[in-house]
């Protein structure tokens, strides 16, 4: 596996055990060594980050760079932000981060936001079967009705994912933080780079591991089973936003 040493950023939501949103920028300079042992089957205790200092009386929200945070006046730790408040806090944190980070990294972030894809989940339609196919083509079983059903069903899944992605309550967030606040249009979720060694997790992560990470940490919800309908829908929505992007597992 060739790894370009060019600096790349991965913006990852990271755990914070308190009432904090945490966003952290990681610069990967070297290809991490893939573990030579089989993936552990037992559940691993994941690393935590120390909470940002606060006065203990106000709600502190922290970006995943582990450095940027802000105190929300008039709200106590454990208070739930409304969607609009959470969005505002999120915007404010990102603005602070963009202002102080190096121009190249900031530009990369903005670029990725801009290229976020719109949902385009229609399955590629194979050559339609013609009624009474002649001997000149091999008959297959699929009709226009099938294509429309497939499209309808896959869009249903993506739409449900879209809804969860944008709705903190459906997600099970306890602090009002939804996925879309940091990832509008699922920007910077880069599902095409999984599986990859996730430095913050110290192990190989799948997209669903990162979804759960975000649910447990910035959103302070309960993580979802791999086959939970909500997990399936979230994966569907995120992947749908990246239609046409080349698969690049292991990329940092």
């Amino acid at each position: 596996m060739n790894h370009r040493t060019k600096r790349k950023i991965g913006v990852c939501a990271i755990l914070l055990a308190g009432a904090f949103v945490l966003l952290q920028t990681v610069r990967a300079q070297q290809q991490p060594q893939a573990p030579v042992v089989a993936a552990p089957t037992a559940k691993v205790q994941l690393p935590t980050h120390p909470p940002a200092p606060g006065d203990g009386k106000s709600l502190v929200v922290q970006l995943c760079d582990g450095e940027t945070s802000l105190t929300v006046a008039g709200m106590k730790p454990g208070d739930r932000l409304s969607p609009a408040q959470a969005q505002q806090v999120s915007d404010e944190l990102m603005a602070q981060w963009l202002a102080k980070t190096d121009p190249e990294t900031a530009a990369a972030w903005v670029r990725e936001e801009k290229t976020a894809r719109k949902a385009a989940a229609a399955p590629q339609k194979p050559a339609a079967a013609k009624a009474g196919a002649t001997q000149t083509e091999q008959p297959n079983d699929f009709s226009d009705r099938d294509f429309s059903t497939w499209k309808r069903e896959v869009e249903r899944e993506v739409t449900y994912g879209n809804q969860i992605f944008h709705d903190d309550k459906l997600l099970g967030s306890t602090n009002g933080v939804s996925c879309a606040m940091c990832h509008p249009n699922a920007a910077n979720t880069h599902p095409e780079t999984y599986p990859k060694f996730q430095i913050q997790l110290r192990r190989v992560a799948l997209l669903r591991d990162m979804i759960n990470w975000c649910i447990e940490n910035p959103s302070r919800g309960k993580k979802l089973d791999a086959d939970d309908p909500k997990m399936r829908a979230l994966e569907a929505y995120i992947m749908a936003q990246r239609k046409g992007v080349a698969m690049e597992y292991g990329k940092h």
């Binding site: 194979p126 196919a133 083509e137 091999q138 297959n140």
Partner: peptide, 9 residues
């Protein structure tokens, strides 16, 4: 006399 055409990718 081309054999029956493939219809699925």
């Amino acid at each position: 006399d081309r054999p029956a055409k493939t219809t699925l990718p």
